[in-house]
């Protein structure tokens, strides 16, 4: 029993990764839009699990909050708003799906051919340790959130501020686009 638990703990990333791939495939293949949203939700939760097993705890939690908490609910609302129309869709997939799938598979094979040595090489991921010149005397790498905030507010402050402006623009733009004409 303990041996089994230990094996599961060691392969946590592989388990979450396979589940994420499966639910993403379910999302693309399912006929009902609500089922697609549920597959999307499960894929996002599995990717959050991948983040956690890569020791990016802050990002895993942010993923759960932003995606499972916000974006999936937004998608569900719009599906309810839009999909309840009288005329049902006859075809789910595009007419030329077959060629598209062949093209994607061909691209995947080409990618594998080019990056074969990188992907099947022997490099492994080490735990996140800040380089000394980044840590600068502060003992920041003990906590993942501290380390991320150090990167966000010291090294990448300008992109962070630009992101806040973009979020504001997106907010106003979404309101303008979605409001009714009569006001």
């Amino acid at each position: 029993m303990e041996h089994l638990l230990e094996t599961i703990g060691r392969n946590m990333f592989a388990i979450f990764g396979v589940m994420a791939l499966g639910s993403a495939a379910f999302m693309v293949a399912s006929r009902s839009a609500v089922h697609s949203v549920l597959g999307f939700l499960f894929a996002m939760l599995c990717i959050a699990g991948c983040f956690l097993s890569l020791e990016a705890e802050f990002l895993g939690m942010a993923q759960i909050l932003v995606y499972a908490g916000g974006i999936v609910v937004l998608f569900l609302f719009v599906v309810m708003l839009v999909e309840m129309s009288k005329k049902k869709e006859k075809e789910v997939f595009q007419a030329q799906s077959r060629y598209a799938v062949v093209a994607v598979l061909f691209g995947a094979a080409a990618f594998m051919g080019v990056f074969r040595k990188v992907i099947f090489g022997t490099a492994s991921v080490e735990a996140l340790v800040l380089r000394p010149e980044l840590a600068q005397g502060l003992n920041v790498a003990k906590q993942n959130a501290q380390a991320v905030s150090r990167g966000l507010f010291a090294d990448y402050l300008l992109p962070f501020e630009i992101l806040s402006v973009i979020l504001l623009v997106a907010l106003v733009g979404a309101v303008v686009l979605a409001k009714t004409e009569r006001v």
Partner: peptide, 21 residues
């Protein structure tokens, strides 16, 4: 994680914000 710097995680957070917008 591979390169031992937090820049990637900070940028992943920024990408998350862009995705929300």
């Amino acid at each position: 994680r591979h390169s031992g710097s937090v820049s990637g995680q900070a940028f992943a957070l920024l990408v998350m914000g862009f995705a929300a917008a």
